[in-house]
Design a protein around this nucleic acid. Sequence first.
DNA 1: GAGTGGTCTAGACCACAGA
DNA 2: CTGTGGTCTAGACCACTCG
Lengths: 263, 263
Amino acid sequence: MSDPDRPTFRVIADQIRAAIHEGTYAKGSTLPTDVQLAEQYGGNRNIVKRAIELLTAEGYVNKTSNQRGSTVSAIIAKIRRDSTARYARAFREGQQAGQPARGSFNAEIQALGMTPESRVRVTRVAPPANVAKILGLQHNTETTIVRARQMFADSTPVQLADSYIPVAIAEAAGLENEDTGVGGMLSRLTEAGYAQATIEETINVRTPSEEEAERLNLTEDHRVYEIVHVARTEDGTAIEVALHVMPVHLWELSYKWEADPRS
Amino acid sequence: MSDPDRPTFRVIADQIRAAIHEGTYAKGSTLPTDVQLAEQYGGNRNIVKRAIELLTAEGYVNKTSNQRGSTVSAIIAKIRRDSTARYARAFREGQQAGQPARGSFNAEIQALGMTPESRVRVTRVAPPANVAKILGLQHNTETTIVRARQMFADSTPVQLADSYIPVAIAEAAGLENEDTGVGGMLSRLTEAGYAQATIEETINVRTPSEEEAERLNLTEDHRVYEIVHVARTEDGTAIEVALHVMPVHLWELSYKWEADPRS
DNA sequence: GAGTGGTCTAGACCACAGA
DNA sequence: CTGTGGTCTAGACCACTCG
């Protein structure tokens, strides 16, 4: 059955992957060292290392710098990002009974029974070129506020999200504070007269930059979603551009809409 | 600057990647052999091979089985799949002046100046378990028609799309023919009284199966989008489930919707 | 038959962390 | 100091293709 001469390093990767699924190696635990694994499965250390590289890139295994033995990833399930629902007001405010979630990220993580955490840093910066273009701003001067968020689930970093807002709008909406209150930034923008009417998200998958790899605890062999999120008012002016970066093995994306709304 | 002890195989990969971008290696052309590259860049053949593996997984290089020298990928630009627009009737029928596009896939490929081609095979099958569950059918018997499409851009395979429709509905809409006429399958379904009202798409990224790898000319180190597309009528019954599989390095996905449509 | 890509082996060196 | 993971080297074998 299947390919008879499937390379050894893939076979070993398959075996270890299966062992993780079966619970032989508990999630969060430490894998045996290369040499130990080499004794168990194949002969050569290089071959075992290659197998583990595969599993690392797939997200089954984490390499915490110079640790003894790699650790089995603590998160197996995918976090679901329901992109259209997350911008509905009820979901943002986390109104379900007994759920203290504030903001859609918290709701997403709690849906998995994990503990969300996020760190925000608000600064005034010159936006990246592509963001500046969408917002119709100069990209050489500090024309935007950025709310740089780093998000965690059970202390594991799972997402980076940088939200760019033109300075004029941010000031009007009082978004220079780190805490944006109930309903988050979007509720503040609405109150300030910048209600978002349409949203567009563009998705690409790429390798993480060195900085992203470090902040998300990834290697360059991983893949991340890069979501460019643009919110516009009724008249079409862009009021916010958010860049989301998240490991593909941790997230599942979902979109729901009505077919042929007009015409 | 950057990491001083960046591993050699990554440095070489960077150099070759840059050379491809600069046009030193023309797209569609054949790269030098391993040994030649080893002479040019580093010393060892293994190291060069590892570099090329990286570039292959990223989609810059194609390995056509036992060819002499790998070939530089012919497609550099990303094909844009505007998921919400593609189900609007005007786009499907390709009504722009002089554009003979029929179906949204053709329009997507022609937008890049490439020539689309697609092969369809219609058969009656037992649906996969997850599809059966969504459609509310048995998955052990032949309860669905599948329109299995394989799509190409300039003769390069770029997407697999299997569309499952319950037998009863397919017969009513006359979908057992391979050619579905102007406006495609969706127009036929609408005419038969199964107008789709809502659409939901769920996106995951994973490694391709062996079969998918072969049909899309990929290795197991590539990554593919898996999009589960579900169309429902006004009363919420699912009438079609489509499984789209496409290499992440060839596609960019886009969604656009109205914020807070109700409430 | 020679060259090539894919795989595997055996062994080496280094930086670094834990005992 | 020892063990470990990350990297690199040198060389081998095989299947396959091209000339």
